[in-house]
């Protein structure tokens, strides 16, 4: 009979996942030491624009500030503790959520169009669309016969 080592999800795979989880925080120090928590981000690039997805659960969209200054995109804001209704004293039993300030910074190519950045918030996810300048977009050149 052949012996097969018990390997729940592949230990190497798990190790990779954990490394990935922590490595992002180590090398890109875009979160800052003063931040109370760090939102996770996806950045996708298309021919004509960049698109960012930022997880900001429990953050009021009005409390988010997005700036793009000479190629540096800064997303910052604050998450407050939810207000306790009058006369209702709650006792905390478990507290995993981070509160307070957050900020992340990304360097984008200077070909982005800083005047046309659009942002929206849906179900705690911030979606930011940053178009590239027209001259930076790839163009197909036809060869004349």
């Amino acid at each position: 009979m052949q012996m097969v080592r018990y390997n729940p999800w592949g230990v190497g795979e798990l190790q990779n996942q954990i490394n990935r989880l922590f490595s992002d925080w180590d090398d890109t120090d875009s979160s800052g030491a003063t931040a109370g928590w760090v939102p996770t981000v996806d950045i996708q690039e298309f021919d004509s624009r960049f698109r960012l997805y930022v997880d900001v659960p429990g953050v009021n969209p009005d409390d988010v500030e997005i700036t793009l200054d000479s190629g540096v995109l800064t997303i910052s804001g604050e998450r407050d503790r939810p207000p306790v209704p009058e006369g209702e004293q709650m006792v905390n039993r478990r507290s995993e959520r981070g509160h307070g300030q957050f900020h992340r910074r990304f360097i984008l190519p200077d070909t982005v169009d800083a005047d046309n950045v659009k942002a929206s918030d849906r179900n705690g996810v911030l979606e930011i669309s940053i178009p590239k300048q027209a001259k930076a977009q790839p163009r197909r050149i036809k060869v004349a016969a």
């Binding site: 996942q17 954990i18 989880l21 996770t40 209702e88 004293q89 709650m90 006792v91 905390n92 039993r93 478990r94 507290s95 995993e96 959520r97 981070g98």
Partner: peptide
């Protein structure tokens, strides 16, 4: 892996 942070409180 994702962090799904929870908070439990009671009165």
């Amino acid at each position: 892996w994702g962090l799904l942070a929870a908070e439990v409180a009671d009165n």
